[in-house]
């Protein structure tokens, strides 16, 4: 799944790419990758297309799913939430989601990092990509019970 997310970010480069991974409500398990259209079509900004987001949300609602991962890419800067990323997500965001960032600034190195964003606070969390060792070249390793594991099968 991380492979698919990185591929989406690469495909949309130099624009920022964005999307979701949905999973059964309450489980926190990332199951279904949903690439979204960046309505801003910008190298420095992203926003879910409002109509598409409504369709996807209705589908998730009917399936009793929730957003487990909300990802977007940075095309020229590091994979860290910007001030507006954190501001918007805190004001009205997805409190249950892992905010995943991919940077595509280097064509050979995919850097992926994951964050929780809540009430203005950005907290990085360790992640572990399993199943596709070549999908990501740098990420924050973790092997603790608190780590978030993205399955690459």
């Amino acid at each position: 799944m991380v492979e698919a997310i990185v591929a989406h970010a690469r495909a949309d480069h130099p624009d920022e790419a964005c999307g979701l991974v949905a999973g059964p409500e309450g489980t926190g398990e990332p199951k279904r990758h949903i690439p979204m259209t960046n309505a801003a079509r910008s190298t420095t900004f992203y926003e879910f297309d409002a109509e598409e987001w409504k369709r996807v949300y209705d589908e998730m609602w009917d399936n009793d799913e929730e957003v487990v991962v909300a990802y977007h890419s940075h095309t020229a800067t590091e994979a860290y939430p910007s001030r507006s990323d954190a501001g918007i997500a805190s004001e009205l965001g997805l409190p249950q989601a892992h905010y995943l960032l991919v940077t595509t600034r280097d064509p050979a190195i995919a850097e992926v990092r994951s964050f929780r964003i809540s009430e203005g606070e950005v907290t990085e969390e360790p992640i572990e990509a399993i199943g596709a060792p070549d999908a990501v070249q740098t990420y924050k390793f973790a092997h603790s019970p608190d780590s978030t594991v993205y399955d690459c099968h």
Partner: peptide, 11 residues
């Protein structure tokens, strides 16, 4: 009526 966060951000 559905209320949704506009998932957005930028540099």
């Amino acid at each position: 009526v559905t209320i949704l966060p506009a998932v957005a951000g930028g540099m």
